[in-house]
């Protein structure tokens, strides 16, 4: 038994290499910022705190409750972690959780891990915290209600992002998978919202200081409100549009060139899969392939180095 709450852990093989690498780059850049920020906000205690909180999220995902017809509700935890620990720490915590799920349990792929961290850890934390930051000084009831909304929205955003990545990879037909994913996750999101609200309510009652004015929970900047609103607007605008009019979105993506480049291997961007000076020989295709692999390697390497410097 290991927790696998949602149909969001993309395995390897389902994303095209371009989409996977782009997701890794976005994820790595955000994590680089997160590493710098948590150092400032949590100080010396950050290591044990984030380490145990990662184990907490992992274990909390095992807590389920029967909904109906043999299905059960689970926690994903990105929004909850962000409200409890602040957005940056939550991102690192969720990254560790998703990394262990991928590495140890093959719950989500390795090359696809960048996308999985982005969908389940970073977007969820940003939305969760954005909502919470907006009502920081409000009453308990308002805070809890908004936390529930945040939790639901975060799951929907994660599902939307996952769907778009699969579609851009040429793995799924938008018109079928988007309504399916959004419907399923609208229900799953309710479970997320209930658990998040109940957990926060319990914590506010027992240890209000942990969510008080000087806690990590209150330290995020107001920019998070904007980030939360922006991401939510994307969900609100894009999801219904794409669900009702997938062909429209498909046309837009095709016009912008997203669709083709998303599906191709990087060296296919090299015209006709050949290297110009070598002409149309088999050797040329080989060299093109090697160049492609090296380019991917360099991008990943550069990202890693950038991460380390920060």
């Amino acid at each position: 038994m290991h927790p696998s709450p949602l149909l969001l852990h993309i395995p390897d093989g389902f994303l095209s290499i371009i989409v996977a690498v782009v997701c890794w780059v976005i994820t790595a850049s955000l994590l680089a910022i997160a590493i710098r920020k948590t150092n400032e906000s949590l100080g010396e205690k950050q290591i044990p705190l984030m380490g145990i909180m990662a184990a907490f999220i992992f274990a909390a995902q095992m807590i389920n409750f029967p909904v109906a017809g043999g299905t059960s509700g689970h926690l994903l935890g990105g929004a909850l972690a962000a409200i409890l620990l602040g957005p940056w720490a939550a991102m690192l915590v969720m990254t560790a959780v998703i990394a262990v799920q991928g590495l140890l349990f093959q719950d989500g792929g390795l090359v696809a891990m960048g996308a999985n961290i982005l969908n389940m850890g970073l977007i969820t934390a940003a939305i969760g915290y954005g909502f919470h930051r907006a009502v920081l000084t409000q009453s308990r009831r308002v805070k809890l209600t908004v936390a529930g909304l945040a939790a639901w929205t975060s799951v929907m955003a994660g599902a939307l992002a996952t769907t778009l990545q699969l579609w851009l990879s040429g793995t799924a037909k938008l018109g079928i998978i988007l309504p399916a994913m959004l419907t399923v996750h609208a229900l799953i999101g309710l479970g997320e919202a209930f658990i998040t609200v109940a957990a926060l309510g319990f914590i506010m009652q027992t240890r209000p200081d942990l969510l008080g004015e000087s806690s990590a929970s209150a330290l995020g900047g107001k920019g998070w409100i904007l980030a939360g609103i922006a991401l939510t607007m994307i969900v609100i605008l894009l999801a219904p549009f794409a669900s009702t009019n997938p062909d429209g979105l498909e046309r837009v993506a095709t016009d912008l060139g997203f669709l083709q480049s998303g599906q191709s291997a990087p060296f296919e961007i090299i015209p006709d899969y050949t290297v110009p000076i070598l002409g149309g020989t088999p050797l040329s295709t080989v060299v093109a392939g090697v160049i492609g692999v090296i380019v991917v390697g360099l991008v990943i390497g550069a990202t890693a180095i950038g991460l380390r410097k920060k």
Binding site: L49, M53, A60, G73, I195, A198
Partner: peptide, 20 residues
Amino acid sequence: RAKVAGNMVGQLFLRSYERS
């Protein structure tokens, strides 16, 4: 039922926090 599960999550969080 969701509330019971949520309370468990809250309890787990507090224990984990103290452990940290």
